[in-house]
Amino acid sequence: MLSNFKVVLVETSHPGNIGAVARAMKNMGMNQLRLVTPKYFPHADATARASGADDVLKIASIHDSLSEAIADCQIVLGASARDRTISWPSVTARECAEKWVDVAGGANIALVFGRENSGLKNHELDLCQYLLRIPCNAEYSSLNLAAAVQVVCYELFVASGRQYASSIGDRGEESLATAEQMEGFYLHLQQTMADIGFLQPERSKSIMRRLRRVFNRAWLDTKELDILRGILRFSQNHNLK
């Protein structure tokens, strides 16, 4: 779906920024990069900053003008952090994603980003139907080129509904502890605290109620519960010696 979105960079000065943009795009499942008269490309700095997104650089197209780069696009959005003298229809990155991600299959959409130091010129914005804005600190609204592209691509990725399951950790491999198992743990915990002299009879209800809240928030699985009960058993055995 997102292949219909074309990231267009106009007169990029630093080749490293092109590589960083390619990396940002690939992070979000996008690969259509168009370059308008880049100062240096291809370049080793671009490849280095791409950090594995060489395939995006390899298929990037180079154009002599912005008009040529967007010739096949039905919707063109020009990124701009500066206010313009003439009022221009504008959308935020999130509004852009919500508005056009569902029609991307039937239309080519250009996301145009200007020069690192000066952005897009007025005659280039004349070719765009919308200003594309990224809400940020009004006192410091200048975003790095790759960071701006990353934000927009992220919003498109989220709006497209694409998800990748996390492979970090083992959450879900063990079943959650049952109510019966948790009650057994609380009784064990209370007895252990009494055995080591921590729990005072007049405060036991209040302390146990708070501890229940702590452990209930944790959604313990059976393996985690076994570890905790093992600690309690060790504490009891050690206290008896």
Results as ranks from 00 to 15, higher is better:
22 A>I: 02
64 D>S: 14
41 F>K: 05
52 G>K: 11
158 V>W: 12
121 K>G: 11
158 V>P: 13
116 E>D: 09
54 D>Q: 15
143 L>E: 05
164 Y>F: 12
145 L>R: 09
169 G>C: 00
33 L>A: 02
167 S>N: 14
168 I>Y: 15
78 G>W: 02
212 R>I: 05
154 Y>T: 04
172 G>A: 10
79 A>C: 13
33 L>I: 00
199 L>N: 07
44 A>W: 10
209 R>M: 02
91 V>N: 09
77 L>P: 02
16 G>M: 07
193 M>L: 14
117 N>A: 10
223 K>P: 04
9 L>T: 01
122 N>G: 04
102 D>G: 13
101 V>D: 06
136 C>D: 06
140 Y>S: 05
214 V>E: 01
186 Y>K: 01
177 A>W: 01
232 L>W: 04
160 S>V: 01
15 P>F: 00
33 L>Y: 11
2 L>I: 02
188 H>C: 05
172 G>W: 06
229 R>A: 03
151 V>S: 10
57 L>N: 03
133 R>Q: 08
90 S>G: 11
65 S>E: 03
197 G>K: 00
106 G>H: 15
58 K>L: 04
9 L>A: 07
200 Q>R: 13
77 L>Y: 03
85 T>Y: 12
154 Y>L: 00
6 K>V: 13
56 V>F: 03
166 S>T: 10
181 Q>P: 08
88 W>G: 11
138 A>K: 15
80 S>Q: 09
75 I>N: 12
169 G>W: 01
181 Q>R: 11
63 H>R: 09
227 I>G: 10
241 K>F: 10
80 S>I: 05
148 A>Y: 14
18 I>R: 14
